[in-house]
Design a protein around this nucleic acid. Structure first.
Lengths: 198, 198
DNA sequence: GTCTATACACCGATAGAC
DNA sequence: GTCTATCGGTGTATAGAC
């Protein structure tokens, strides 16, 4: 009916696809399910995208670019690095609990990308982005607590990404909040020991 | 042609399915791909299994039951808990490097199970098994190093599972061995601090 | 029990009217 | 540009001969 700019239509389809994947998984995110979610006809899909794979590729790039600081150390002067890190990880955990489907979708998208050599760079970029955000948090936390990283911050950031990833995956399976808190504490402990107080 | 007992045929199909999933991913593990891998006809599949889902369910149960001690602390008297744990995690990492496709397959199976309420118990059982194996390692490591867990061993085991899971996922994406070693070190550090020397 | 042949649903993608 | 209708292909599952 209405005439909609191509870019807008692409964005709408990407959003719809993410909703379908979050709700039902990537396997159920067929072109038909996506256009139904977006309230469009099937042909509109292929007017906006050459193929389903093209949409999924752009979906990953878009969502990764959109990803915001997840592990934010809450500014609270006078607290040590360990406490700041733990609070930051707990903030991420709250984010996970608030929208588990989103993190589950991101995990599925990663594994999808891992399965094709062509799409592998998308997964790598996704985790590079995670590491970048983690690094920013770590720099900030060290500044706030007056500490100095003994190892390259990028290395510590990579560890933080692994720890939060593990926290996410295990919690998605057993939904054990207490266990997740324990993981958060252990992770903050290990990370804080990669820095020296000034 | 040949007459094969049903149980044997089921086992052969399960093995074939695991090979296909490891090689090409769960999405490509169609009934046709599985029977081709097993060298059977399509009808034989449905003689042995009522449906593809039934095979996947049994595949998860079988593989999980088959799972062996992954993080084994290498017996080496005179070493501290931290060193024992690190060696154990590194042993797991070597196992991961030796057969990444297997761990990737296990991750995909977990996510597949997470997507249906009926199959959720399979994922839960899978991670309960991981935790059980981890707990055994931690008990052993404490014994060998003469340490005593300050927290319930099951709690420390759950943390170990999360850490190895995170190590796995991130390494599968970037294949950064150095980063993985760093994760292993940090994980061993955090875990060892959950125990006291005797 | 094991096969070939096929039913039937659903997929991605396109043709062609408007 | 947007729609309905449909193509060609592949998926799971089954029928029926042997």
């Amino acid at each position: 009916m209405t005439r909609i700019p191509a870019a807008e239509r692409r964005a709408a389809l990407i959003d719809a696809a993410l909703r379908v994947i979050s709700r039902e998984g990537i396997a159920q995110a067929t072109t038909r399910a996506i256009v139904a979610e977006a309230g469009m006809s099937l042909a509109s899909f292929h007017y906006a995208f050459a193929s389903r794979d093209e949409l999924l590729d752009e979906l990953i790039s878009t969502v990764v670019a959109r990803e915001q600081q997840a592990v934010v150390p809450v500014p609270a002067p006078g607290r040590g690095l360990r406490e700041l890190l733990e609070t930051g990880i707990l903030a991420y955990f709250e984010h996970l609990r608030a929208d588990p489907a989103h993190e589950q979708a991101m995990l599925e998208l990663t594994q999808y990308a891992l399965r094709s050599p062509d799409r592998l760079p998308l997964a790598v970029a996704q985790y590079a982005r995670y590491a970048e955000l983690a690094e920013r948090s770590l720099v900030l936390a060290a500044e706030m607590s007056g500490a100095r990283w003994r190892v390259p911050v990028s290395e510590a950031a990579r560890v933080l990404v692994a720890f939060t990833d593990g926290l996410t995956l295990t919690w998605l399976v057993d939904r054990d909040d207490t266990a997740a808190l324990s993981v958060a504490r252990a992770a903050a402990d290990a990370l804080s020991r990669m820095a020296d107080p000034l």
